[in-house]
Structures are given as C-alpha cells and as structure tokens.
Computed example of a mutant assay.
Amino acid sequence: MQAMRSVTRGRDGYEQWCHDVRAICGRFESRAPRYLDDFAGHIALHRRPGLEFAQVATNAHSLAKTGHDTRAEDGLYYFLIYQRQGRSVLSQQGRQAMLDTGDLALIDSRLPSEFVYLADTQHVSVHLPCEALERRLRSPRPQLARTLAAASPMGTVLGGFVEQIAARHELFGEREGGALTDALLALLAPLADDSEHAGGRARDWARVAAYIDERLDEDLDPQDIARSCAVSVRSLYRLFEARDTTLGTYLRERRLACCAEALSTPAWQHESVTQIALRWGFKDSAHFSRSFKARYGMAPREWRHRPR
C-alpha cells in the first residue's frame, strides 16, 4: 500500500511539500531555496507489511528537527538514509556525515537532526524500528551520522539493496516486506554497531573516575578534569549522562562514600568528623552532616558509633 505521494512546484507547492514532509518523516522544518518560485519537491511514503520507506527529492536548502519540536509520536525509528542523487550533509549529536551519490548514513528519528542539501537531491529513507535494530547490536546504541561510502564493499551491497527496494517495491507481497527488513537489519547491524566507541568510552570513564578519586579533597573543575583526562568537556558530561547522573552528583556521592568508609574504619578513629569531612572535600561541616544524613539515614556521629 502506498500511503502518500506529493509532487509540488513553486511557492504554493513548497508549503504543501513541507506539510507532507512533517506528515511522513516527523516534525522537520525546511529552509526554502533562494528563489521560492523555482522550488521543486517530491515525497512519497511506501508501506508494505513489515517494510516502510520514504523517497524524497528537493531543491530546498535544508531540513531540520530541533530539540524543541522532537516528539515521541514521530515514531520510534532509525532512518537509514541512502543518497540516491546529489550531495548532502547530515548532522546529529555533534557528528556530520557528508553524503555523495550512493552513500548511506543512519540517524535516530527521536533526536534532533539536520539535512543540508548542496544541490538538487534525492534520497531514500528506510524506517527501521529502533528495538529491532538495537536487539542485534553489541553496544546499547548504533553509530549515528557516520558515512558508509558507496565505494566500500558493504556500502556497495547495502546501497544496491536499498536501491532495489526503492525501484521494485510494488512487486513485493506481504511476506516479502518483513523478510526484506530483516535482511536489511542483518546487513546493517555489524556496520552500525558502536562497540568500538563504547570501548573508548569505557577507557575514558576509567581515566575520569581514577582522576576524581585521587583528588576528592580538591576543588574539581570540569575544564581541568576534561583537559587532564584528554576528553572534551562535552564528552565528559556525556560520560556521566550515560550513567544517569551528573558530575556534581557523582562528586558528592563519592565524597560521602569515602567519608562513610573512613568513619567505619578504626584507623580513622583519631580524626574528628569535621576533619574527615574536610579530608574528602566538604568545606562546610553543617552541609556535610545534612548531606550525609540524607544519604545514609543517620548523622555522621551515629554512623561512626552504630553497632557493627
């Protein structure tokens, strides 16, 4: 079943094309070509049971989905973009993929993204359910906005496969649609797997955690931590986001944990509660006592003298 097709030209056609893009691909906003009367655009959504893809052609300057207009109802899909004609730049999560004819890249429809078209362009966007792809990965998420070149061996295979789906979709029946999507996921998963990047992040985290533990008594600044651990400040924050925490929360929790351990250790019994708090980076004893009680359910002195 073909759900929607739109071929539009000129100023009025541009508004219709923008409306149809939002209906098919989500809440994207377009930047018009320089001369709006010269606009030309085409978009079509094709659906078979188990298979969904869109064909887009335009001379518009760009399409963008920002954090403000991203909505869950846009669908839980990864879009596999196949550059059928022309050139474009695809951006997501601080990465850019330059796509020439025949190249491919993957984006997450749930996240902000941008397409900048460098010439009249055509692309195919295959809509892959997020859960179906993520089940096949070793890493939690796939690599996004990474160019898979048409000249590479797997780029040739995958691009040719998508081209045949787009060219011959009307010949596929109900059973073939799901089989084609499964085959596409099987081909894509090893290429999209972010396990190498995940390994790099694990090493980054190990350096950051060790650096912090050695300096809990210091005033730790994000810029200094990032510079000393050879990561960007943005990457530093992402390391903590991946663990559902923040740098400030992590520092407080580590300092409290070290204080709790010291208060329980005979070797530290000669040190006062205030001295232990200062040793692990708390500058205010009253603030330390409140934070400790909120975390462990009793005051530091009660913790020190609790039955063990």
Rank of each mutant, 00 (worst) to 15 (best):
L80N: 00
Q93V: 12
Q96W: 01
L106G: 04
Q83H: 09
H68D: 15
Y77D: 10
H68C: 13
T101F: 06
R110C: 05
G75N: 05
A64C: 13
D69F: 08
M98S: 06
I81V: 14
A97H: 01
G102K: 00
Y117L: 14
V89T: 11
K65E: 07
F79H: 13
D103E: 00
D108K: 07
L76M: 13
S62K: 08
L80T: 01
Q83W: 06
R87Q: 15
S91D: 05
A72Y: 09
H68G: 09
Q85C: 13
V116I: 06
Y78S: 07
T70A: 14
G86F: 02
L104T: 00
K65Q: 15
V116Y: 04
G94A: 11
Q83L: 05
L76P: 06
S88P: 00
Q85S: 13
Q96P: 05
G86A: 08
A97N: 02
L76N: 13
Y82T: 04
T70N: 11
L80R: 10
Q93I: 13
A97R: 00
D108W: 07
G86Y: 00
E114G: 08
E73L: 12
S109G: 01
L63M: 11
K65P: 03
F79L: 14
D74F: 02
I81N: 07
D103H: 06
G75A: 06
T101G: 04
G102T: 02
R87Y: 08
A72W: 10
S113D: 09
Q93W: 12
G94E: 04
R95H: 08
E73Q: 14
Q93T: 05
E114Q: 12
D100P: 07
E73V: 13
Q83N: 03
G94F: 01
S113T: 15
A64M: 11
G94N: 01
G86N: 03
L104K: 03
D74W: 06
R84V: 10
I81L: 02
S88I: 03
R110M: 13
A64T: 12
A105D: 03
L99Q: 03
S113A: 15
D108I: 11
V89R: 02
Y77F: 15
E114W: 00
Y78P: 10
F115D: 06
Q85L: 06
V89W: 02
M98R: 08
K65S: 10
Q85A: 15
S91R: 15
A105R: 04
S109H: 10
L104M: 10
H68Y: 07
E114H: 10
L106Q: 01
Q83K: 07
S91N: 05
D69N: 14
L99T: 11
E114T: 14
E114I: 08
S62E: 07
D74E: 12
L80H: 08
D74Q: 14
I107S: 03
P112S: 01
S91W: 09
D108P: 02
L99V: 09
F115K: 02
R71I: 11
Y77H: 13
E114N: 07
Q83I: 03
A64K: 06
T66W: 05
S109R: 11
R87E: 06
I81C: 00
D103W: 03
M98I: 14
I81S: 02
L63G: 02
G94T: 11
D69M: 10
L104P: 00
L104G: 01
T101S: 06
L99A: 07
A97E: 10
E114V: 04
S109V: 08
Q96N: 14
R84Q: 13
S113L: 11
Q92E: 12
